[in-house]
Write a protein that binds this DNA or RNA. Structure first.
Length: 434
RNA sequence: UCCACAGUAGCUCAAUGGUAGAGCAUCCGGCUGUUAACCGGAGGGUUGUAGGUUCGAGUCCUACCUGUGGAGCCA
């Protein structure tokens, strides 16, 4: 087979009538006696190779019997346009070469349970639904980077090993760090992004984040990816404007570039098409009014639960921005509203269809004394935050930013019922493998 | 940590307290256009574990194990 034009399935359209070689794995096979069909999967698509007895050598024809699901093999043949083929093209097989026979591949083209599939995540990734999700994820990540890169943001990566909790509330993963005591896996790059914003004006960080909370829901992973923009000389309104332009760009880009994948996932994209600015903006107080009108007993000062978020978001045809939360339920670094010190200049974006909070952010406290008081009030170790306080000592300015959870966003765009399918190898409270 | 639900063939699931079954997968046979192909046949079980009730337990009771997703926490 040497010397053949080796091609990928996604580019078959450019090779109609030519003889090519395809390399991949057996997705499925069918036979009708003297005519045999081999479905080859090469990572870019699936194509059916057809061979009839007498049309190929007996040797090649017999290799059909040896091939099992997910065996690695190559097909040589002529590309033909065929309306019967799901991908539009077929291969008239002239030769078959076997690389490796797979025995008893566990994932059949039938239904399986979540535990069975999760235990075989390394193989599950070969299935077409997972291909669609991973391609959406990949494109979304690129869209996120493009959005900020095109606007002059500088990528400032934050450290993953940190000396203390950023927000001081959630449980962190802990590890020994030489002679310096304990280190923790980061729960947010935000504090470092703030330093970056004071250095470069507008920055973003985009990396993995770790939370050791024993959360066991469809919206939680212990390891997830978060993109966090941070902008100097930006207030809460500027922050909301950035958030809505950002969401519009990434959602519309994925809709435009990954329509085929969303079709595979049978995603109804009607509501996603609506993700354009302006997004509705309501205050925490207005959100409570919505809940009370819907008969929910809700006390001012509490945070919204998952069902509360769903009820609020159901009132709108696109993501809704909720701002000015009670300060007591928000992080120490959020600036208070000068008009009402009981509320923080915080911002959450709730996705439609029950996907919940995909963005959380705020205008940051830029006053040194206020921040010092807040650190004391929250019983945080001031020494660990001295460098952060320096940002207020040397040219402090109003600044804002937010974090967007990548997996929740992928889950929302793809219409999945659990974030565990949005990342190649999910990390959850009771799952560390594969 | 708390609450709820589940655990039967390799997989997905059935089975009034009374002989453990089906579809798929696997193996054998058939079929020249199949699309999760179809048709015929075969093999495949310590019903999560340990006790208990009963003439008799997959089924009822207790404890434990494992899983699932909800609360809390959050993106």
């Amino acid at each position: 087979m040497e010397g053949m034009g080796r091609v990928y399935i996604e580019e078959l359209g450019k090779h109609v009538g030519e003889e090519v070689e395809l390399r991949g794995w057996l997705y499925n096979k069918r036979s009708s006696g003297k005519i045999r069909f081999l479905l080859l999967r090469d990572g870019t698509g699936i194509v059916q190779g057809v061979m009839a007895k007498g049309g190929v050598s007996d040797e090649a024809f017999a290799k059909f019997d040896e091939l099992t699901q997910e065996s690695a093999f190559a097909l040589k043949g002529k590309v033909r346009k065929d309306d019967r083929a799901p991908g539009g093209f077929e291969l008239e097989v002239t030769d078959v070469r076997i690389y490796a026979i797979a025995t008893d591949y566990p994932i059949t083209p039938k239904e399986h349970g979540v535990e069975f599939l999760a235990d075989r995540r390394h193989l599950w990734l070969r299935s077409s639904r997972q291909h669609a999700v991973m391609r959406v994820r990949h494109r979304l990540i690129k869209a996120i980077r493009d959005f900020y890169d095109n606007r002059g943001f500088v990528l400032i990566d934050s450290p993953i090993l940190t000396p203390a909790a950023c927000e001081g509330t959630t449980t962190l993963f802990e590890t020994d760090y030489f002679d310096l005591g304990k280190a923790y896996l980061t729960q947010s790059g935000q504090l470092y992004a703030e330093a970056g914003a004071m250095a470069f004006g507008k920055v973003y960080c985009f990396g993995p984040t770790f939370r050791a909370e024993k959360s066991k829901t469809r919206r939680h992973l212990t390891e997830f990816w978060m993109v966090e923009p941070e902008v100097a000389f930006a207030d809460l309104n500027d922050n909301m404007e950035l958030a809505e332009e950002f969401l519009e760009y990434i959602v519309q880009t994925v809709l435009r570039e990954r329509g085929e994948e969303l079709k595979v996932l049978e995603r109804n994209t009607t509501l996603l098409q609506n993700v354009k600015k302006p997004l509705p903006r309501i205050s925490y107080d207005e959100a409570i009014e919505i809940l009370r009108k819907k008969g929910v007993q809700f006390e001012w000062g509490n945070d919204f639960g998952g069902t509360d978020e769903t009820i609020i978001s159901e009132q709108f045809d696109r993501p809704v921005m909720v701002h000015r939360y009670p300060a007591q339920i928000k992080a120490f670094y959020m600036k208070r509203d000068p008009q009402n010190p009981n509320v923080a200049l915080a911002l959450d974006v709730l996705a439609p269809e029950g996907y919940g909070e995909i963005i959380g952010g705020s205008q940051r406290e830029d006053n040194l004394d206020a921040l010092l008081g807040r650190i004391k009030q929250h019983n945080l170790p001031q020494e660990a935050f001295e460098w952060y306080l320096d940002l207020r000592r040397y040219g402090t300015v109003p600044h804002s930013g937010f974090g967007l959870g990548l997996e929740r966003t992928v889950g929302w765009i793809c219409g999945l019922d659990h974030v565990r399918e949005t990342v190649p190898f999910p990390r959850m409270i009771y799952r560390l493998t594969p």
